[in-house]
Amino acid sequence: MKRSVGDMVAEIYRKDFNAFTHRSILELNPHAEFHYNWHHEFIANSLLEVYLGLCPRLILNVPPRHLKSFAASVAFPAWVLGHRPWAQLLSVTYGQELSDALARNSRRLMTSPFYQSLFDTRLARGREAVFDFETTQGGVRLSTSVGGTLTGRGADIIIIDDALKADDALSDVRRTAVNDWYDNTLRSRLNNQEAGSIVIVQQRLHADDLVAHVQEREDRWRVLSFPAIAEEDD
């Protein structure tokens, strides 16, 4: 039987995370003007390798307002749960308000007609809270803030999106608190320390921020860095 154009387009969105991200932006922001740039493809491909298990430790250093949070904290959890409705994801930011905003958009995407036409994944009734929603197959997207309680909770993928506010970057106390919480609490929440994945998304804020801290302690981090102003021709 000949496949329809609609079926072929849907297959592209299911398989191509970059295409899925672009379409998701339009789904949640129908009146916004979207300007595609080559860096979106690099971010999408890096996150795809996290999903495939080819990149267990990923750092995305991108300036503000370049859709890094949308790709990593909104579209990516939804896409992962579309393919693996049993997956457990943990999303962390510097504040619960920001964490909830990202989770709310991810939940809106997953309950949209567009998403539900692509995937069989559905949210479980009674487990639809913004900060902790669950699929009918036991998958979870849990959102918290740095310093939050995670007792008894685990994750296959941890996404840390802006662990430190820019205003706190010069505070030794705040930087140390973030780094210590990562070492003593967050990292241990991986269900599998070897196979589990961690993604850090942020602009660089200090020579001793979380990005520098984790690279000193583990050598398998892959860094995708896009400076706001190029320091040399590339």
Rank of each mutant, 00 (worst) to 15 (best):
K2C: 13
R3V: 14
V5M: 15
V5C: 11
V5A: 15
D7S: 14
M8S: 15
V9Y: 10
V9H: 14
A10G: 03
K15W: 06
K15P: 01
D16N: 04
D16K: 10
F17I: 04
N18F: 08
F20M: 00
T21G: 08
H22V: 04
I25H: 11
L26M: 13
L28K: 00
N29P: 09
P30S: 15
P30F: 10
H31N: 00
E33D: 11
F34H: 14
F34R: 04
Y36C: 15
W38Q: 15
E41H: 07
F42E: 10
I43K: 03
I43V: 11
A44R: 04
A44N: 08
N45F: 01
L47E: 01
L47C: 13
E49H: 02
V50E: 10
P56R: 02
R57V: 10
L58M: 01
L58Y: 07
I59N: 07
V62P: 08
H66G: 12
S69R: 07
S69C: 02
S69V: 02
A71R: 03
A72S: 14
V74F: 00
A75D: 04
A78P: 00
W79Q: 08
G82W: 04
Q88N: 11
T93P: 06
Y94G: 01
G95P: 06
Q96V: 12
S99P: 03
S99D: 01
A101S: 15
L102P: 10
S106G: 09
M110L: 05
T111V: 11
S112D: 12
S112Y: 01
Y115L: 14
Y115G: 01
F119I: 11
T121L: 15
R127N: 13
D132K: 00
F133K: 02
E134F: 09
G139M: 04
R141D: 06
R141T: 10
L142C: 12
S143Q: 05
G148C: 03
T149M: 01
L150Q: 11
L150Y: 06
T151N: 14
R153M: 02
R153K: 13
G154F: 07
A155W: 10
I158P: 00
I160H: 03
I160E: 09
L164S: 07
A166L: 08
D167H: 12
D168F: 02
S171G: 03
D172C: 05
V173R: 13
N179A: 05
D180L: 15
D180F: 12
Y182N: 06
N184R: 13
L186R: 03
L190C: 07
N192M: 09
A195D: 10
V199D: 02
I200L: 00
Q202E: 08
Q203E: 14
V211M: 08
H213E: 09
Q215S: 11
Q215G: 01
E218P: 05
E218S: 13
R220Q: 13
S225A: 12
P227M: 06
I229Y: 13
E232T: 14
